[in-house]
Simulated assay, not measured.
Amino acid sequence: MRINRILNNNVVVVKEDNEEIIVMGSGIAFRKSRNDIIAPDKIEKVFVMKDKGEYEKFTQIIDQLPEAHIIVTEEIITQAEKTLKTKLNEHIHVALTDHVSFAIERVKQGYQIQNKLLNEIRVLYAAEFEIGLWAIRHIEDKLLIHLPEDEAGHIALHIHTAKMNGTTMNQAMNTTSILNDLIVKIEQKLKVKVEQDSISYQRLLTHLNFALRRVAEGQLTQDVDEDMHHLVKEKHKTAYQVSVELAEYLDAAYNYTLPTSELVYLSLHIQRIERNKKGGVEE
Score class of each variant (00 low, 15 high):
residue 73 T to Q: 01
residue 154 H to E: 00
residue 57 K to A: 13
residue 166 G to N: 05
residue 252 A to Y: 06
residue 58 F to L: 07
residue 117 L to A: 03
residue 202 Q to V: 08
residue 125 Y to D: 05
residue 43 I to D: 01
residue 132 G to K: 04
residue 277 K to S: 12
residue 99 H to F: 06
residue 114 Q to C: 11
residue 86 T to S: 13
residue 106 R to P: 00
residue 251 D to Y: 07
residue 31 R to Q: 06
residue 158 H to L: 04
residue 163 K to M: 11
residue 73 T to F: 02
residue 188 Q to R: 08
residue 122 R to A: 02
residue 175 T to P: 00
residue 107 V to K: 13
residue 234 E to D: 05
residue 156 A to R: 03
residue 246 L to D: 11
residue 114 Q to P: 00
residue 223 D to M: 06
residue 45 K to Y: 07
residue 76 I to H: 01
residue 171 Q to C: 00
residue 200 S to A: 14
residue 82 K to C: 08
residue 229 H to D: 10
residue 204 L to S: 07
residue 148 P to R: 06
residue 131 I to W: 00
residue 228 M to E: 09
residue 218 G to H: 11
residue 207 H to I: 00
residue 19 E to T: 14
residue 238 T to L: 15
residue 34 R to T: 02
residue 202 Q to K: 15
residue 16 E to T: 15
residue 151 E to N: 07
residue 273 I to T: 07
residue 195 E to L: 09
residue 168 T to F: 07
residue 64 Q to I: 08
residue 223 D to C: 01
residue 214 R to G: 02
residue 93 H to Y: 15
residue 160 H to S: 14
residue 257 T to D: 08
residue 214 R to W: 01
residue 35 N to M: 06
residue 49 M to A: 02
residue 44 E to G: 13
residue 213 R to Q: 02
residue 142 K to E: 14
residue 29 A to P: 04
residue 173 M to A: 00
residue 63 D to G: 13
residue 234 E to C: 06
residue 172 A to K: 06
residue 21 I to N: 14
residue 59 T to K: 14
residue 169 M to P: 00
residue 159 I to V: 13
residue 24 M to R: 11
residue 5 R to E: 08
residue 80 A to W: 03
residue 198 S to Y: 07
residue 73 T to Y: 02
residue 128 E to S: 15
residue 200 S to T: 11
residue 269 H to A: 03
residue 97 T to A: 01
residue 132 G to D: 12
residue 17 D to S: 05
residue 144 L to A: 14
residue 224 V to S: 11
residue 65 L to V: 04
residue 228 M to P: 11
residue 176 T to L: 04
residue 205 L to G: 05
residue 224 V to M: 06
residue 191 K to T: 14
residue 212 L to E: 00
residue 213 R to F: 07
residue 257 T to K: 13
residue 129 F to V: 02
residue 22 I to G: 01
residue 97 T to Q: 08
residue 137 R to Y: 10
residue 277 K to C: 13
residue 209 N to E: 14
residue 3 I to R: 10
residue 211 A to H: 00
residue 241 Q to N: 14
residue 167 T to Q: 10
residue 55 Y to G: 01
residue 114 Q to M: 12
residue 248 E to K: 09
residue 265 Y to M: 04
residue 275 R to S: 09
residue 282 E to F: 02
residue 192 V to L: 13
residue 7 L to Y: 12
residue 244 V to Q: 14
residue 47 F to W: 03
residue 227 D to E: 04
residue 278 K to Y: 11
residue 224 V to I: 07
residue 229 H to V: 05
residue 192 V to M: 10
residue 123 V to Q: 04
residue 154 H to Q: 09
residue 199 I to C: 01
residue 87 K to N: 10
residue 37 I to F: 09
residue 211 A to D: 03
residue 82 K to G: 02
residue 112 Q to F: 08
residue 147 L to Q: 01
residue 11 V to F: 15
residue 189 K to C: 03
residue 60 Q to F: 11
residue 277 K to P: 03
residue 204 L to K: 07
residue 56 E to A: 13
residue 160 H to Q: 12
residue 142 K to I: 07
residue 247 A to H: 09
residue 146 H to A: 03
residue 3 I to V: 14
residue 156 A to K: 10
residue 152 A to D: 12
residue 223 D to I: 02
residue 257 T to L: 10
residue 45 K to E: 08
residue 127 A to N: 15
